[in-house]
Amino acid sequence: MALLVLENVVKSFRSPDGDRHTVLDIPGFSLKAGEQVALAGSSGSGKTTLLNVIAGILRPDSGKVIIDGTEVSALTESRRDRFRANNLGYVFQSFQLLQGHSALENVLLGMAFGGGADRRVAEELLRRLGMGERLHHLPRQLSIGQQQRVAVARALAHKPRLVLADEPTGNLDHANAGTAMELLCEACVAQGASLLVVSHDPQVLARFRRRVELSHLNHAGVAGVGR
């Protein structure tokens, strides 16, 4: 059964000169429960916009985004927020950890907007990801690899059905990128979550059995604006 379904999703933005530029035009796409898929695309191809549309951060101009039977694109903004908090995990490019908060607090905050923060669960997850000694460290006190682990823990702590990852290895060197992807994929498997990764890194893409070229999926003729 498909966990994620996109039907005729169109998203456009108004450019500074007043013209509308269509960034996404996806007739159809689906992702099964527990499946891990990589979307390949060059810079500006609309990868981030697609993830934001799926996450409900952006609303498509037309078409449907259905996750686990819920038409997310039809929900009000606050319901989309609630849905995202309960059902989605998001790993951002450059991790986007909250700088003033410790590793543990970052994970707790990720849980707080969903089912509720559970300190024990958060600590356990961080320990499983090898961060047991760094629970109370601030992001700036962590290495890039450790920040990556915190970001993964934050995305998974509330047990989402679907994890979205936007260039998750964009800031990592070759060795760390491999480790990070392994970590993310394994954590998703352990949690039973589906994973949709967008990347242009061949090393990342090579890890996935199902790889989709965004340019084949996206019929928008014009290059996106990188949103």
Partner: peptide, 10 residues
């Protein structure tokens, strides 16, 4: 970031 994690505008 908070919004992306599911925090509402309110």
């Amino acid at each position: 970031i908070l919004r992306a994690l599911g925090a509402r505008r309110a």
